Amino acid sequence: MTARHLGSITRGTTNPNRLRRVDNWIAATLGGVLRRAPDPLVVDLGYGASPITAIELHARLGVPVVGLEIDPARVAAAQPFATDTLRFRRGGFELAGLRPTLVRAFNVLRQYDEADVPAAWAAMTATGALLVEGTCDELGRLASWVLVSPAGPQTLTLAGRLASLDTPSTLAERLPKALIHHNVPGERIHALFTALDEGWRAAAPLSVFGPRQRWRRTVESAKAAGWPILDRPSRWRLGEVTLRYSSVAP
Protein backbone atom coordinates (compact mmCIF):
# COMPACT_ATOMS: atom_id res chain seq x y z
CA MET A 1 0.00 0.00 0.00
CA THR A 2 0.98 3.62 -0.38
CA ALA A 3 -0.08 6.53 1.76
CA ARG A 4 -2.11 7.98 -1.10
CA HIS A 5 -3.43 5.03 -3.06
CA LEU A 6 -5.01 2.17 -1.12
CA GLY A 7 -4.40 -1.23 -2.64
CA SER A 8 -1.88 -3.39 -4.43
CA ILE A 9 -1.12 -4.02 -8.08
CA THR A 10 -3.00 -7.15 -9.17
CA ARG A 11 -2.44 -9.49 -12.11
CA GLY A 12 -4.58 -7.35 -14.41
CA THR A 13 -5.73 -10.09 -16.80
CA THR A 14 -8.86 -9.23 -18.76
CA ASN A 15 -10.72 -10.01 -21.97
CA PRO A 16 -13.23 -8.18 -24.17
CA ASN A 17 -16.84 -8.80 -23.15
CA ARG A 18 -15.71 -10.52 -19.96
CA LEU A 19 -17.93 -8.36 -17.75
CA ARG A 20 -21.03 -8.27 -19.96
CA ARG A 21 -23.19 -10.10 -17.39
CA VAL A 22 -22.53 -7.71 -14.55
CA ASP A 23 -22.71 -4.67 -16.86
CA ASN A 24 -26.12 -5.70 -18.15
CA TRP A 25 -27.30 -6.33 -14.58
CA ILE A 26 -26.11 -2.87 -13.52
CA ALA A 27 -27.94 -1.26 -16.43
CA ALA A 28 -31.17 -3.11 -15.66
CA THR A 29 -31.06 -2.98 -11.86
CA LEU A 30 -29.24 0.24 -11.02
CA GLY A 31 -29.98 2.26 -14.13
CA GLY A 32 -32.66 4.19 -12.25
CA VAL A 33 -30.14 5.17 -9.58
CA LEU A 34 -27.84 6.56 -12.25
CA ARG A 35 -30.66 8.40 -14.02
CA ARG A 36 -31.80 10.05 -10.78
CA ALA A 37 -28.31 11.17 -9.79
CA PRO A 38 -27.79 14.89 -10.51
CA ASP A 39 -24.22 14.26 -11.69
CA PRO A 40 -23.84 10.51 -12.31
CA LEU A 41 -20.36 9.04 -12.29
CA VAL A 42 -19.25 5.42 -12.40
CA VAL A 43 -15.80 4.20 -11.39
CA ASP A 44 -14.32 1.04 -12.87
CA LEU A 45 -11.79 0.12 -10.22
CA GLY A 46 -8.90 -2.11 -11.22
CA TYR A 47 -9.66 -2.40 -14.94
CA GLY A 48 -6.40 -4.22 -15.51
CA ALA A 49 -3.72 -4.35 -18.18
CA SER A 50 -6.22 -3.36 -20.89
CA PRO A 51 -8.87 -0.63 -20.51
CA ILE A 52 -11.43 -2.63 -22.51
CA THR A 53 -13.75 -3.30 -19.55
CA ALA A 54 -13.96 0.42 -18.77
CA ILE A 55 -14.60 1.21 -22.42
CA GLU A 56 -17.40 -1.36 -22.55
CA LEU A 57 -18.90 -0.16 -19.27
CA HIS A 58 -19.00 3.38 -20.60
CA ALA A 59 -20.75 2.25 -23.78
CA ARG A 60 -23.30 0.11 -21.95
CA LEU A 61 -24.29 2.64 -19.29
CA GLY A 62 -24.08 5.88 -21.26
CA VAL A 63 -22.81 7.91 -18.28
CA PRO A 64 -19.38 9.30 -17.43
CA VAL A 65 -16.90 6.63 -16.35
CA VAL A 66 -13.50 6.90 -14.72
CA GLY A 67 -11.20 3.89 -14.85
CA LEU A 68 -8.91 3.70 -11.85
CA GLU A 69 -5.73 1.64 -11.66
CA ILE A 70 -3.01 1.69 -9.04
CA ASP A 71 -0.40 0.77 -11.63
CA PRO A 72 0.78 4.00 -13.33
CA ALA A 73 1.89 2.10 -16.44
CA ARG A 74 -1.66 0.84 -16.99
CA VAL A 75 -3.05 4.34 -16.56
CA ALA A 76 -0.61 5.68 -19.13
CA ALA A 77 -1.43 2.90 -21.60
CA ALA A 78 -5.17 3.71 -21.34
CA GLN A 79 -4.87 7.43 -22.11
CA PRO A 80 -5.28 7.07 -25.92
CA PHE A 81 -8.78 5.71 -25.27
CA ALA A 82 -9.87 8.63 -23.07
CA THR A 83 -12.72 10.92 -24.12
CA ASP A 84 -14.65 13.76 -22.52
CA THR A 85 -16.77 11.23 -20.62
CA LEU A 86 -14.28 8.36 -20.26
CA ARG A 87 -11.18 9.13 -18.25
CA PHE A 88 -8.38 7.13 -16.68
CA ARG A 89 -6.62 8.01 -13.44
CA ARG A 90 -4.37 6.45 -10.86
CA GLY A 91 -6.18 5.36 -7.74
CA GLY A 92 -7.16 2.55 -5.41
CA PHE A 93 -9.84 1.86 -2.84
CA GLU A 94 -9.79 5.52 -1.81
CA LEU A 95 -11.19 6.26 -5.33
CA ALA A 96 -8.66 9.02 -5.98
CA GLY A 97 -10.84 11.52 -4.14
CA LEU A 98 -13.79 11.02 -6.50
CA ARG A 99 -17.40 10.88 -5.32
CA PRO A 100 -19.00 8.41 -7.74
CA THR A 101 -22.57 7.23 -7.78
CA LEU A 102 -21.44 3.67 -8.42
CA VAL A 103 -18.22 1.67 -8.26
CA ARG A 104 -17.63 -1.58 -10.13
CA ALA A 105 -14.69 -3.58 -8.77
CA PHE A 106 -14.37 -6.94 -10.50
CA ASN A 107 -11.68 -9.59 -10.08
CA VAL A 108 -9.82 -7.27 -7.71
CA LEU A 109 -10.51 -8.45 -4.16
CA ARG A 110 -10.23 -12.06 -5.25
CA GLN A 111 -6.48 -11.50 -5.13
CA TYR A 112 -6.58 -10.20 -1.55
CA ASP A 113 -7.05 -11.93 1.79
CA GLU A 114 -10.60 -12.29 3.07
CA ALA A 115 -9.67 -10.21 6.09
CA ASP A 116 -9.03 -7.25 3.75
CA VAL A 117 -12.55 -7.24 2.32
CA PRO A 118 -14.51 -5.26 4.97
CA ALA A 119 -12.04 -2.36 4.92
CA ALA A 120 -12.01 -2.29 1.12
CA TRP A 121 -15.81 -2.28 0.97
CA ALA A 122 -15.94 0.51 3.57
CA ALA A 123 -13.38 2.62 1.68
CA MET A 124 -15.18 2.30 -1.65
CA THR A 125 -18.58 3.22 -0.18
CA ALA A 126 -17.34 5.89 2.25
CA THR A 127 -18.66 8.78 0.14
CA GLY A 128 -22.08 7.19 -0.32
CA ALA A 129 -21.40 5.23 -3.49
CA LEU A 130 -22.96 1.90 -4.28
CA LEU A 131 -20.43 -0.84 -4.95
CA VAL A 132 -20.77 -3.87 -7.20
CA GLU A 133 -17.91 -6.19 -6.25
CA GLY A 134 -17.41 -9.63 -7.67
CA THR A 135 -15.56 -12.22 -9.67
CA CYS A 136 -15.91 -14.01 -12.99
CA ASP A 137 -14.01 -16.53 -15.06
CA GLU A 138 -11.77 -15.54 -17.94
CA LEU A 139 -14.56 -15.60 -20.55
CA GLY A 140 -17.32 -14.22 -18.33
CA ARG A 141 -19.38 -17.42 -18.43
CA LEU A 142 -19.44 -17.82 -14.65
CA ALA A 143 -19.83 -14.82 -12.36
CA SER A 144 -21.07 -13.63 -9.01
CA TRP A 145 -21.19 -10.26 -7.33
CA VAL A 146 -22.28 -8.47 -4.19
CA LEU A 147 -24.11 -5.15 -4.12
CA VAL A 148 -22.70 -3.15 -1.22
CA SER A 149 -24.15 0.10 0.12
CA PRO A 150 -22.64 2.34 2.80
CA ALA A 151 -24.72 0.28 5.25
CA GLY A 152 -23.03 -2.96 4.16
CA PRO A 153 -23.63 -5.81 1.70
CA GLN A 154 -27.22 -5.97 0.42
CA THR A 155 -27.53 -8.68 -2.24
CA LEU A 156 -25.67 -11.55 -3.86
CA THR A 157 -26.15 -12.35 -7.55
CA LEU A 158 -25.10 -15.56 -9.26
CA ALA A 159 -24.94 -15.54 -13.07
CA GLY A 160 -23.83 -18.04 -15.65
CA ARG A 161 -24.07 -19.22 -19.22
CA LEU A 162 -26.82 -21.80 -18.89
CA ALA A 163 -25.95 -23.66 -22.07
CA SER A 164 -22.65 -24.79 -20.56
CA LEU A 165 -23.59 -24.92 -16.86
CA ASP A 166 -23.05 -28.38 -15.36
CA THR A 167 -24.68 -27.67 -12.01
CA PRO A 168 -25.45 -24.48 -10.06
CA SER A 169 -22.63 -25.29 -7.63
CA THR A 170 -20.18 -24.76 -10.51
CA LEU A 171 -20.80 -21.05 -9.90
CA ALA A 172 -19.20 -21.44 -6.47
CA GLU A 173 -15.80 -21.39 -8.20
CA ARG A 174 -16.33 -17.68 -8.81
CA LEU A 175 -17.80 -16.53 -5.52
CA PRO A 176 -16.53 -13.17 -4.22
CA LYS A 177 -13.67 -13.32 -1.75
CA ALA A 178 -16.03 -12.66 1.18
CA LEU A 179 -17.83 -15.95 0.50
CA ILE A 180 -15.64 -18.33 -1.47
CA HIS A 181 -13.89 -19.88 1.53
CA HIS A 182 -17.22 -20.45 3.28
CA ASN A 183 -18.66 -22.86 0.75
CA VAL A 184 -18.34 -25.75 3.21
CA PRO A 185 -20.96 -27.79 5.12
CA GLY A 186 -22.49 -25.80 7.94
CA GLU A 187 -22.24 -22.44 6.18
CA ARG A 188 -25.24 -20.71 4.61
CA ILE A 189 -23.66 -20.23 1.20
CA HIS A 190 -23.08 -23.99 1.04
CA ALA A 191 -26.72 -24.57 1.97
CA LEU A 192 -27.78 -22.31 -0.91
CA PHE A 193 -25.78 -24.27 -3.46
CA THR A 194 -27.09 -27.52 -2.01
CA ALA A 195 -30.67 -26.27 -2.50
CA LEU A 196 -29.94 -25.08 -6.04
CA ASP A 197 -28.27 -28.35 -6.99
CA GLU A 198 -31.21 -30.34 -5.62
CA GLY A 199 -33.62 -28.19 -7.61
CA TRP A 200 -31.44 -28.56 -10.72
CA ARG A 201 -31.53 -32.34 -10.46
CA ALA A 202 -35.28 -32.38 -9.87
CA ALA A 203 -35.79 -30.16 -12.91
CA ALA A 204 -33.75 -32.43 -15.20
CA PRO A 205 -36.85 -33.52 -17.21
CA LEU A 206 -37.28 -29.90 -18.32
CA SER A 207 -33.94 -30.05 -20.14
CA VAL A 208 -35.80 -31.08 -23.27
CA PHE A 209 -37.27 -27.54 -23.31
CA GLY A 210 -33.86 -25.94 -22.89
CA PRO A 211 -31.61 -24.88 -20.00
CA ARG A 212 -33.59 -21.71 -19.32
CA GLN A 213 -36.67 -23.69 -18.34
CA ARG A 214 -34.58 -25.95 -16.14
CA TRP A 215 -32.91 -22.98 -14.43
CA ARG A 216 -36.22 -21.20 -13.91
CA ARG A 217 -37.69 -24.25 -12.18
CA THR A 218 -34.52 -24.52 -10.09
CA VAL A 219 -34.86 -20.95 -8.86
CA GLU A 220 -38.59 -21.38 -8.25
CA SER A 221 -37.90 -24.41 -6.07
CA ALA A 222 -35.30 -22.51 -4.04
CA LYS A 223 -37.74 -19.64 -3.56
CA ALA A 224 -40.46 -22.07 -2.47
CA ALA A 225 -38.02 -23.51 0.05
CA GLY A 226 -37.71 -20.10 1.70
CA TRP A 227 -34.63 -18.57 0.12
CA PRO A 228 -35.17 -14.75 -0.13
CA ILE A 229 -34.90 -14.40 -3.89
CA LEU A 230 -35.43 -10.81 -5.00
CA ASP A 231 -35.39 -10.78 -8.79
CA ARG A 232 -38.05 -11.79 -11.29
CA PRO A 233 -38.28 -14.53 -13.93
CA SER A 234 -37.14 -12.06 -16.58
CA ARG A 235 -33.71 -12.11 -14.91
CA TRP A 236 -33.74 -15.85 -14.23
CA ARG A 237 -34.05 -16.60 -17.94
CA LEU A 238 -30.68 -14.86 -18.35
CA GLY A 239 -29.08 -17.34 -15.99
CA GLU A 240 -29.20 -15.09 -12.94
CA VAL A 241 -30.55 -15.23 -9.43
CA THR A 242 -30.31 -12.46 -6.83
CA LEU A 243 -31.05 -12.88 -3.15
CA ARG A 244 -30.53 -11.06 0.13
CA TYR A 245 -26.91 -11.17 1.23
CA SER A 246 -27.95 -11.73 4.82
CA SER A 247 -29.25 -15.18 3.86
CA VAL A 248 -25.76 -16.34 2.83
CA ALA A 249 -23.49 -14.18 4.99
CA PRO A 250 -20.81 -16.06 6.95
Rank of each mutant, 00 (worst) to 15 (best):
M1F: 08
A3S: 09
S8M: 12
S8W: 11
T10I: 15
R11I: 15
G12T: 01
N17V: 04
L19P: 08
R20Y: 02
D23L: 12
A27D: 15
V33D: 12
L34W: 04
R35S: 07
R36W: 05
A37N: 14
I55G: 03
E56V: 00
E56P: 04
H58D: 11
A59Q: 12
L61C: 10
L61F: 09
G62P: 06
P64D: 08
G67Y: 06
G67D: 07
L68S: 02
I70L: 13
I70T: 07
D71C: 13
V75H: 09
Q79E: 10
P80Y: 05
F81D: 05
A82P: 10
T83D: 03
T85E: 11
F88Y: 05
R90V: 05
R90L: 10
G91L: 01
G91M: 00
F93K: 05
E94A: 06
P100K: 06
T101E: 10
T101C: 02
N107F: 02
V108Y: 04
L109A: 04
R110I: 15
Y112E: 06
E114H: 09
E114Q: 08
D116N: 07
T127I: 07
G128P: 02
G128L: 01
A129Q: 04
V132F: 03
E133M: 00
C136P: 06
C136Y: 06
G140W: 01
G140Y: 09
L142Y: 12
A143G: 06
W145S: 00
W145G: 00
L147E: 00
P150V: 08
A151C: 15
G152H: 01
P153E: 07
Q154N: 06
T155K: 09
L158H: 04
A159T: 00
G160L: 11
R161F: 14
L165T: 03
L165C: 08
T167Q: 13
K177H: 05
I180Q: 14
I180S: 14
H182C: 03
N183E: 02
P185E: 10
E187A: 09
E187K: 11
I189W: 00
I189M: 01
T194I: 15
T194V: 10
T194E: 14
W200C: 03
R201D: 15
A202K: 05
P205M: 01
V208H: 02
F209S: 08
F209P: 08
F209C: 13
P211N: 04
R214M: 07
T218C: 11
V219A: 07
A222F: 13
A225S: 13
A225Q: 10
G226R: 13
W227S: 09
P228H: 12
L230A: 02
R232A: 15
S234N: 15
R235S: 11
L238M: 07
E240R: 03
T242I: 03
L243Q: 09
S246V: 11
S246D: 14
S246T: 11
V248Q: 08
P250D: 04
